[in-house]
């Protein structure tokens, strides 16, 4: 790929030529965009545009983190725009149905609505250290992946793309009541997943 502005900064452009790194990234972003847009082709287009922008401006970035922040910000804007203008095409293959009713049977609460003993949240040690640990982010990603699709989609709209509740209700075509139920379930699940796989090594209070 040539650059009309002349030779880009060597370090950043080398990052972009790092095949496995870009592939890994592309996969992550396409998955994210597909979930949001409900359309694989649109998702690929959006990611491609964001990456082309990155190639052109590679000189302005030092290192992967700055580059990823920037590409992801572009992608988030594209997704937010598409969602706000309701250009999303809901495909037959992307149904928005209640996808976890069976899950509630084995939920974290007993039949009276209180925490089951083994499910009661414990205090997390050193959460501020986790964000600096590469392994933590692999766990975080795996926990996001493990959410039922609708919960993942709505949670990501809220917490990663930072749309407002109103915007999400419009984009996902759900009621405010639905939105709150879905976010509650997604947060319960994610919290449990992180506690089991990362924060849970501490002792359990009685």
């Amino acid at each position: 790929m040539s650059n009309p502005e002349g030779a880009p900064d060597l370090a950043a452009s080398e990052e972009l030529r790092d095949g496995p790194f870009i592939e890994d990234w592309r996969r992550q972003m396409i998955k994210f965009a597909t979930l949001q847009l409900g359309n694989a082709q649109w998702a690929e287009d959006a990611v491609q545009e964001a990456l082309v922008g990155a190639y052109k401006n590679a000189g302005a970035f030092r290192g992967r983190a700055a580059l990823k922040t920037w590409v992801f910000a572009i992608l988030k804007n594209k997704i937010a725009d598409a969602l706000r203008h309701r250009q999303r095409v809901v495909e037959a293959s992307a149904p928005l149905r209640e996808d976890d009713s069976a899950d509630e049977l084995a939920g974290p609460f007993d039949e009276r609505g209180f925490w089951r003993t083994a499910e009661r949240p414990v205090a997390w040690e050193n959460p501020e250290r986790a964000v600096h640990d590469h392994q933590f982010w692999r766990v975080f990603e795996a926990c996001l992946d493990a959410l039922p699709p609708q919960q993942a989609r709505v949670f990501m709209m809220r917490e990663l793309i930072e749309l407002s509740a109103d915007e999400i209700c419009q984009a996902a075509d759900i009621t405010a009541g639905n939105l709150h139920v879905i976010l509650h379930r997604a947060r319960l699940r994610l919290r449990r997943c992180l506690e089991r796989n990362w924060f849970g090594e501490g002792e359990r209070p009685c």
Binding site: A65, A66, F72, A130, V131, W137, E141, E159
Partner: peptide, 19 residues
Amino acid sequence: ILREAARAFAAGEDERTGE
């Protein structure tokens, strides 16, 4: 913590630790 982590993740914090 979940909210802060999600925003840090979206901002590329996971790549920063990779570096």
